[in-house]
């Protein structure tokens, strides 16, 4: 049994380890280890295309995560303790957003936006000389839609475990509802909100399939990596992959620590 577990862990981590190992190769072959060097990291970080794609990915991930966190938290606050039709409709929307395959969301967003743009652009151009196109905006809107649903689930989950007595006590002691929110509720749900932000950022940063459709002329890092793999794997891609995984890992650990803190608070 123990041996079996070791085998599964090896299966899970061997591919990741191989990429990390090959990324330090000094040779030109992507699938062989030839000496040790950091040159491919240097190459990757000095490649203007990589840096441009990285910047796009970070910008989109940050903006979509901020919007998703704010809007998702607001919705979660309103939905907590709510009954009736509105609640049912929102539960359904969250479920649809999480369940419909990313690829269908991607194509649906693409054709809907392109159709809307075709419709309004002639007017807009005539009036302002400026027109709408796919790019950062559509990436942020599409990523945020999915991650907002994650934030709603996370924050609502935390809200439902809050101790109602604290809020009542705060009211009894004369705090205004706003005062109670900022001084009692908010500090308690903050870890869940931050965890939601980090998960949203990680999702957006790693997403390929939705971005592939709605990026327009922009290139995100996963799109860059995918098209590079199509042309053949290089040690430079291994170095980029290793850095991306390290970054996601870091975000994930921070999110987990925050969630653990939030759960510990809930138990207290």
């Amino acid at each position: 049994m123990r041996l079996y577990a070791w085998a599964v862990y090896a299966f899970l981590y061997l591919p990741i380890g191989i990429i990390a190992l090959f990324s330090f190769s000094a040779g030109r072959s992507a699938s062989q280890m030839q000496g040790f060097s950091l040159q491919w990291y240097g190459r990757a970080l000095n490649n203007p295309f990589v840096m441009e794609a990285l910047w796009t990915s970070v910008r989109v991930a940050f903006l979509s995560a901020v919007l998703a966190t704010v809007v998702g938290t607001m919705a979660a606050l309103a939905l907590t303790g709510m009954r009736g039709r509105t609640r049912k409709v929102f539960d359904l929307l969250v479920q649809i957003a999480v369940m419909i395959p990313g690829i269908v969301i991607g194509i649906a967003t693409l054709i809907a936006l392109v159709s809307v743009f075709d419709l309004v652009n002639p007017w807009l151009e005539a009036l302002t000389g400026w027109k709408l196109s796919l790019g950062t905006g559509s990436l942020v809107a599409a990523h945020g839609l999915f991650t907002m649903s994650l934030v709603v689930l996370l924050v609502r989950g935390r809200m439902e475990t809050l101790d109602g007595a604290l809020i009542e006590a705060s009211g009894d002691l004369g705090a205004t509802p706003m005062g109670t929110f900022w001084q009692v509720t908010f500090p308690q749900i903050l870890p869940a909100i931050l965890a939601g932000f980090l998960l949203a950022f990680t999702f957006s940063f790693d997403d390929f399939i939705i971005a592939f459709f709605v990026a327009g002329a922009e290139t995100t890092l996963p799109i860059y990596v995918f098209s590079s793999i199509r042309r053949g794997v290089t040690p430079e891609i291994n170095a980029i992959g290793t850095m991306v995984m390290a970054a996601s890992l870091f975000m994930l650990i921070v999110a987990q620590l925050l969630l653990r803190r939030s759960q510990a608070q809930a138990r207290r």
């Binding site: 899970l12 981590y13 591919p15 990741i16 191989i18 990429i19 090959f22 992507a30 699938s31 998960l199 990680t202 790693d206 390929f208 996963p222 990596v225 995918f226 793999i229 794997v233 891609i237 992959g241 991306v244 995984m245 996601s248 890992l249 994930l252």
Partner: peptide
């Protein structure tokens, strides 16, 4: 591993 890029994890299997 689930929360790291599936793109990168998949292409490792090319090797």
């Amino acid at each position: 591993p689930f929360w790291t890029s599936i793109l990168i994890r998949s292409y490792a299997w090319i090797f």
